[in-house]
């Protein structure tokens, strides 16, 4: 009991820490960060993540069609496949998988960079030079993640749907039928809902990444530990919020 209790308390304390950091960051947003910093972070994020997102979503779209096509054809529902795949990708798989990939790639990089700055006293140096570390480091990363994640999801959705189409061809479903079923079944909310999710996942990745960076323990070991924790926690948070957001957006 005591172990479970202390575990839950620890979790709550950490989540409280995330929320406090988010509030601090929003407070710092009042002073616009330099555009240059935000753009640099966005470039980082896009270049780092787009290739993996593309690959992940291509295979996901392919495998989705692979698993559904045979069954659907058996029930004479081949004309729905394009729609089903695209809805699944747009609503759930696109944002979630992009979020997970970005957490592993970008979240880890953010934590590693900031925790290294922490243990080498660069954060202290920022403070000494009257520069708020949250305003200088966290705000640009938060903005970059909030903007870039939805963009990545747009690419991911298109590529996922394209992957589905490749396999559909293989099952003798014509391109026309695939496109038409997308046209008939998919509404724009399937798409925009996923993008709203992506904005939240961007916030999660940036805040959790920065949190573990700023509160890293000393030493090189501290950097490694912080990075692992950041990725694990961001992924858990993404799945949790995804469930929650799906309930709100798609009920």
């Amino acid at each position: 009991m005591a172990i479970i209790g202390s575990f839950i308390l620890k979790r709550l304390a950490i989540w409280g820490g995330f929320i406090l950091l988010l509030l601090d960051t929003l407070k710092q947003c009042r002073q616009m960060p330099r555009l240059r910093h935000v753009l640099r972070q966005m470039a980082h994020l896009g270049v780092d993540t787009l290739p993996i997102v593309a690959l992940t979503m291509l295979f996901t779209g392919m495998v989705l069609t692979l698993q559904t096509a045979a069954e659907f054809i058996r029930f004479g529902a081949q004309s729905t496949i394009g729609g089903v795949v695209t809805i699944a990708v747009g609503r759930e798989l696109g944002p979630v998988l992009t979020g997970v990939v970005a957490a592993g790639r970008v979240g880890a990089a953010i934590t590693a960079e900031i925790s290294t700055m922490k243990v080498t006293e660069q954060i202290d140096a920022l403070k000494v030079m009257a520069t708020n570390p949250i305003g200088y480091l966290v705000v640009p990363r938060l903005l970059a993640c909030m903007i870039m994640l939805p963009l990545l999801v747009v690419f991911g959705d298109i590529i996922g749907s394209f992957g589905g189409w490749i396999i559909a061809n293989y099952y003798d479903i014509s391109s026309f039928m695939y496109m038409r079923s997308i046209d008939v079944f998919v509404i724009s909310h399937d798409f925009t809902g996923g993008l709203i999710k992506a904005v939240f996942f961007g916030i999660i990745i940036a805040i959790i990444g920065c949190y573990y960076g700023l509160y890293a323990e000393n030493g090189a070991e501290g950097v490694g530990k912080a990075t692992t924790k950041s990725v694990v926690n961001a992924i858990i948070a993404i799945f949790f919020f995804n469930c929650f957001l799906s309930m709100i957006l798609y009920r």
Binding site: M117, T120, E121, Q122, D124, A125, K127, V128, M129, A130
Partner: peptide, 14 residues
Amino acid sequence: RLTMGMVFQYSALF
């Protein structure tokens, strides 16, 4: 702090 400067023991360069 705008009127202060500090040299860190381990430099702490960015």
